[in-house]
């Protein structure tokens, strides 16, 4: 990993810390154990497209409206992260990543370290072709929030907490 990408990672972690959004680093080998420590049951999720990890068996990866409503945690893959803002970009998928990341109280986005970009223009450049291809995505930064009831409250229509699981690969020097 170059010095520059190292600093991008630091910026991402600092941006999350500024918002009090939790981040846990893990590796493919430790992924299941890490996830177990982060989530609160019941857990729903959508398949992870990373190759080196997949959702553990105890995650309901074929949620229905009923299990979605009953779930406390939703686990979905982030397409990429934006270091400057501590944002994760969540793709809309036919498997339902959008509702899974939105309905449960806790959202756990899984972000692969290779998918971190520095800033907003780079992120939008990356999204351009995807949107022109009919795709949709949410740039999500921290939990849902509102100030409409007279004071700032975290947890409005969406999750009240976000916990990023940051997946490091063993071959750090790629």
């Amino acid at each position: 990993m170059s010095a520059e990408s190292g600093s991008v990672r630091n910026r991402f972690e600092e941006a999350l810390a500024d918002r009090d959004v939790a981040l846990t680093r893990t590796t493919p080998a430790a992924f299941e154990a890490t996830l177990q420590a982060v989530v609160t049951e019941p857990v729903v999720g959508t398949p992870l497209p990373f190759g080196d990890v997949s959702l553990p068996e105890w995650v309901d990866d074929e949620p229905t409206p009923a299990t979605l409503e009953a779930a406390t945690t939703g686990v979905t893959a982030a397409s990429f992260g934006i270091a400057d803002y501590g944002s994760v970009v969540l793709p809309s998928t036919p498997e339902g990543s959008e509702p899974v990341s939105l309905f449960p109280e806790l959202h756990v986005p899984v972000l692969h370290e290779r998918d971190l970009v520095a800033d907003m223009p780079t992120a939008i450049e990356r999204l351009g072709p995807e949107l022109r291809d009919g795709g949709s995505a949410i740039v999500a930064t921290g939990p849902s929030a509102t100030a409409d009831m007279g004071a700032l409250v975290e947890g409005a229509h969406g999750p009240n907490a976000v916990h990023v699981v940051f997946l490091e690969t063993d071959g750090d020097g790629e």
Binding site: T93, E98, G134, V139
Partner: peptide, 14 residues
């Protein structure tokens, strides 16, 4: 930045 910047290309795949 606000919590959500939705970039939706409807009709969406969700």
């Amino acid at each position: 930045i606000t919590s959500y910047v939705s970039l939706l290309t409807p009709p969406v795949d969700s």
